[in-house]
């Protein structure tokens, strides 16, 4: 078990796991390399309770800038597909038309913090990526070839986000992301 660096204060509501907020900004002019990726990502802070989460969440303005991403990951997991926690993993990707990301992002992270996915230790974290024409949500898990887990994550997403039945959800393994050097292009599985 990971050593926790942050603890709930007296009277606060503890979370099952500590989570760390990250922020990153895309620099479209430069090719995406792991070096520029590491340079562009910034750790904002770690929370151990529901109360601490809301204090951070209120501080972060979301949805008003194009070309940035907010990340909420379990403490200790690095936001790189090559990290040990992510090596065999993958992610569900949901593309959203502009205007929906804030609400959907909040619902995804509340489901994650509240342990609604019921997949043991599988969830790593979630990302919202604010783009120019569309926004992208993703949720990462540890074991991409565990179909029971990935199906359960997909079904929970449909439920908590109340997704229209025609919403396209795509699953992509991190190996595929490494291979084509893109997080969202050329997705292999589409359901």
């Amino acid at each position: 078990s990971r050593r926790k660096t942050v603890c709930p204060a007296a009277g606060e509501h503890p979370l099952q796991y500590n989570y760390t907020f990250w922020y990153s900004r895309r620099t479209p002019s430069r090719p995406a390399s792991s070096q520029s990726y590491e340079q562009n990502i910034r750790q904002i802070g770690t929370v151990a309770s529901v109360d601490q989460f809301w204090r951070f969440y209120h501080l972060i303005r979301q949805g008003d800038l194009s070309g940035h991403s907010d990340h909420l990951f379990k403490e200790g997991i690095k936001l790189h597909v090559g990290d040990e926690s992510n090596r065999s993993g993958g992610k569900w990707i949901i593309r959203l038309r502009k205007g929906l990301a804030s609400r959907f992002w909040e619902n995804i992270i509340l489901a994650m913090l509240g342990e609604q996915f019921m997949v043991g230790e599988e969830i790593c974290g979630a990302v919202v990526s604010i783009r120019f024409q569309e926004d992208i949500l993703s949720i990462w898990n540890r074991t991409s070839n565990d179909q029971m887990t990935t199906s359960r994550i997909r079904d929970t997403l449909r439920r908590v986000l109340n997704l229209p039945t025609n919403t396209i959800m795509e699953y992509k393994t991190h190996n595929d992301s490494l291979r084509d050097n893109s997080s969202f292009r050329n997705t292999k599985i589409s359901l």
Partner: peptide
């Protein structure tokens, strides 16, 4: 072990508690 589960409504209610500000 036990898992700490919260539903959405509970989490949203906590949003307005004095501890969350």
């Amino acid at each position: 072990g036990t898992r700490i589960i919260y539903d959405r409504k509970f989490l949203l209610d906590c949003r307005n508690s004095p501890l969350a500000r």
